[in-house]
């Protein structure tokens, strides 16, 4: 019992106490009313939530398909792909946006190809500075976070089970639906809620996009605090963001505990 005290004390000093100060600061008179009344806040809230939900859905679908192929249609180099995913996870998210700037930016690969081929003055790809650009980057970056628990879950499925199913005449799609999907559901739920929380909190991707039209809650916190020095407003937005993601995170822990992850 006593041994637990020092780390808890340190955590309290460097994390819990600062967090409490944020809550305290957000309670400045009129701060909540002012922030909630502002259009930029409501817009940021909506953008944040729909981006996170859409990105999560995209990650789940893409992650499931990719993990399925990697796990059950073995090919030489499959191990390398899994390794690559681990490495990919250790890189910061903004690298994806940086890369997308070269691929889909106004003077990037895709537009360059288009102008070369069609002779047009300008390429058709301008979505990078819109929410769609952020969505593409988030799906790209967070899909591996879904794939990892899925690959772990798939490795638990016995090949014998699949062989029995196919010897009984089940076609691959049927096996996926009736054998693999039920086994994968806990991992999907756990990975999906983790990605949802991480998307709600994502900052680097949005910052690098440089899109003025895309403001999420974390961006708003940064803007209010650093650019406008309006700490009370920043703290209000922060409290809302924390409530949103911690609430979801509690859900995620519940789900992953039930999944035994």
């Amino acid at each position: 019992m006593l041994w637990a005290l020092p780390p808890v004390a340190v955590l309290a000093l460097v994390f819990l106490y600062p967090l409490a100060l944020v809550v305290q600061e957000s309670l400045a008179p009129g701060a909540y009313a002012e922030v909630f009344a502002s259009a930029s806040f409501r817009e940021a809230l909506v953008t944040t939530v729909w981006l996170a939900v859409a990105a999560t859905a995209g990650c789940l679908v893409l992650g499931f398909v990719l993990a399925l192929v990697i796990a059950f249609v073995p090919f030489p180099g499959g191990k390398a792909v899994s390794k690559f995913i681990d490495v990919f996870l250790s890189f910061p998210s903004f690298l994806i946006t940086l890369a997308l700037l070269f691929v889909y930016g106004t003077v990037g690969m895709a537009n360059g190809l288009w102008t070369d081929v069609t002779g047009a003055a300008e390429g058709p790809f301008h979505f990078l500075t819109t929410p769609w650009g952020v969505l593409l980057a988030e799906i790209t970056y967070f899909t591996p976070f879904v794939m990892r628990p899925l690959l772990a879950a798939f490795s638990q499925i016995e090949t014998a089970q699949l062989e029995v199913a196919s010897s009984l005449g089940a076609r691959p799609l049927r096996i996926v639906r009736q054998v693999i999907l039920p086994e994968a559901l806990p991992a999907l739920a756990a990975g999906g809620s983790l990605v949802l929380v991480m998307c709600l909190n994502e900052f680097g991707i949005v910052l690098f996009t440089g899109a003025k039209g895309v403001t999420t809650l974390p961006m708003l916190v940064y803007g209010k605090a650093i650019l406008e020095s309006d700490y009370a407003a920043a703290c209000v937005v922060a409290v809302v963001n924390v409530a949103l993601s911690v609430g979801l995170y509690v859900l995620y822990r519940g789900v992953s505990r039930r999944a035994g992850a």
Binding site: P18, V197, L200, A238, S245
Partner: peptide, 22 residues
Amino acid sequence: ALFMLPVAVPSVVVGLAVLVAF
């Protein structure tokens, strides 16, 4: 739960909190 909390709190908010406190 206490030690996992920083995962759920947005990093930007952690930055803000540390800034406010220190």
